[in-house]
Design a protein around this nucleic acid. Structure first.
Lengths: 221, 221
DNA sequence: CGGCCGGCGTGACTTTTGTCACAGCGCACC
DNA sequence: GGTGCGCTGTGACAAAAGTCACGCCGGCCG
């Protein structure tokens, strides 16, 4: 397996990209590198009150999700190289608000919450970056709630195809989990979209042929 | 109308409660007090890129909401004395992610984004409070998205009744907007809950008689 | 007093979404 | 070269949610 220096991975994250060189080394020295197999659990919703860690994805893909009592799953986001998760728990001292699992063989760096909080206390540029990041996340979750409450499935699928460049390669079941619906409904939505000429279905990948129409459907439905 | 010193109102907010006395006065001096009639618009989604303000509720109630293209409304939260809104826009420099309207005659303090950002840069305790606040908001929106995607309306109504102490006095249409549904469906859910003996309906207010059963329904449905 | 308005209650219906069941297809792996 | 598995495609159906249309009540105001 390929080895990547923690410093290089940290520089990919908006949180750490602009740190002073020696601060970065200080942090890098305190990271634990962890490797996960595909489908392996990284953190679990509700865990770790008080002892949480910030996670930085070095390589691979991490699925952040919530599961309902009857097993249905809502995927909140997919994290890739340079993305971080666990911030909410780090900054408010509560348990993890969602679970995380490796989607494929994945390497992450884990950093104890107190390291992050110390850094935020002493480095204004860093706390600023944290605030910007949290604001962005909040915005994104607000939009997700809005979409779930006010738009139909076809609309949400259209939006996903427009905004997530690699949605085109997900399976229909994965798309369903990201838009809060089911595989069958997503399948029908996709066929309906292809009927309008907005997209084309090619085996297991999707080609957006008419983004304009897709945009229309995304915010009309 | 009653007059409240800005300092007193600021002390009600978790963001400003622990500021040094003279820092607080510095901030208070830069606040603008604004008064709004019932139903008057305070901020509008999409507005104010770059020139946003943080708002602190002094008295009254502010409804934070999003509206769909066809007029349906999702209420994200109701803000009261000491609550703040507009943080997401303040910290990431984007436009307001949602709209805000006074629900009743309301007084707010408005503070230019740059004041807040300056303070966050120079006062670690303050930036810490900001981060805690943002983390809490993020958690809350994540939960909202989860509920919308994974729970049925009756469940969401039950949860609202359990967690929002003054939900009992809202109209059914307001409850509907808070759980992302419609008045009729909420009406039927409430009658169904009263049929189970979990609540009692008394004219335009609701009495929770069996919180335990309500809890059960809230996370079973 | 009478009329209006906002909120509740409800029946009847439509639409959307979810569920179940099963068929086909391609591909990796014995 | 068969076998299994994961993904797609679909019909038929069930359940949940949303819509429309009303009637009713109570309070407020001219």
């Amino acid at each position: 397996m390929q080895v990547i220096a923690p410093e290089r991975a940290l520089r990919c994250s908006p949180l750490f990209a602009d740190l002073e060189r020696d601060t970065l080394e200080h942090i890098a020295a305190r990271c634990q590198e962890r490797r996960y197999a595909s489908r392996q659990r990284i953190v679990t919703e509700g865990d770790g009150s008080g002892q949480v860690e910030l996670h930085i994805v070095v390589s691979g893909v991490v699925r952040i999700f919530k599961r309902s009592f009857d097993g249905r799953e809502l995927v909140l986001s997919l994290m890739r190289r340079g993305d971080t998760f666990g911030e909410a728990a780090v900054f408010d001292g509560g348990p993890y608000p969602a679970s995380a699992e490796a989607q494929e063989p994945t390497v992450v760096l884990a950093l104890a919450a107190c390291e992050i909080r110390n850094l935020a206390r002493t480095d204004p540029a860093f706390s600023d970056a944290c605030l910007r990041l949290m604001a962005g996340r909040l915005r994104q979750m607000t939009t997700m709630a809005e979409d779930l409450a006010l738009r139909r499935v076809m609309s949400r699928v259209s939006k996903l195809l427009l905004t997530d460049p690699d949605a085109a390669h997900l399976t229909q079941a994965q798309i369903a989990a990201m838009v809060g619906s089911t595989r069958e409904v997503v399948n029908r939505s996709l066929h309906s979209l292809s009927g309008c000429g907005a997209i084309e279905l090619h085996g297991q990948s999707i080609l957006v042929t008419d983004p304009e129409q897709l945009r229309l459907i995304a915010h009309t439905g």
